[in-house]
Amino acid sequence: MTGPGPRVLVLGNSHIAAVKAAHEAAPGCWSALDFLGGQGEALASVTAEAGVLAPQDEAARQNILHLNGRDAFALADYDAFVVVGCKLGIYRALAPYRRARFLGLPSVARGKVGGYAAPVSRAMFGMAVQEGVAACLGGALALRIRASVQSGVPVLIAEQPRPSFDCRRAPDRFGEVLRAERLRDGPPLTEMFEAGVRAALPGITLLPQPSKTRAGALFTRPRYGNGSVRLTAGDRQYLHPEDDFIHANAEYGALVLDQIAAAVQAPRGTGVSPRL
């Protein structure tokens, strides 16, 4: 890690690639960062033992070592921790929405509960969101870090971007979110998600998806998804397929870095952030 300002460790799954790409494109723009990336569920086995964050599972260790060049990170080396993506996003509210509806939803107010979804109380829906938030890869990881560092050390979580609005081209994969948008249920679902994070992740600050990247309540503007790259070990970048619709690009990553800098009060450098 180089440069002045707080020392920050950014942890994440495939969604960390957007942040990493932004940082690599303009290294002088933000405070120096270290990255702990892990593909798939690799971060699920990362725990803090004797003050060191490391995977406890051999396959995860190999993956993290390959991606980051090291497999252990001393907690004391950092002033703040940021979990990126890791399934912590609007999907946590969309999962219960697949099977349940509450009265505060505009669709329910218009009498469109639907035969496949059961009516539940708002409180119970919120409880389901909270359970999902705490149990998902990012929520659980953030909680483990929170429990391992002093209360004054910031632990942040940057939510996974919403799907690109271009996902309309794949209605079979994104049927639920498209239905929610059509029924105008997005805003209360967003509220549910954010309230769920506050309740389920005490002491952890949510960095919500930057507002300028959003399309409606439930989508990401396509310009922030186009050209997204995979999480890889080397410098060479591999693009996601055009119909990925899930991952964001470096331009989006730059906005997340701005959020991180503001949250940890790091001085911003003079570099130019990427505009792809």
């Binding site: 999962a95 219960p96 349940a100 539940v120």
Partner: peptide
């Protein structure tokens, strides 16, 4: 008649 519609832990 009313199975739990959400993926909640059984105790919840």
């Amino acid at each position: 008649a009313e199975p739990a519609p959400l993926t909640l832990p059984e105790a919840t």
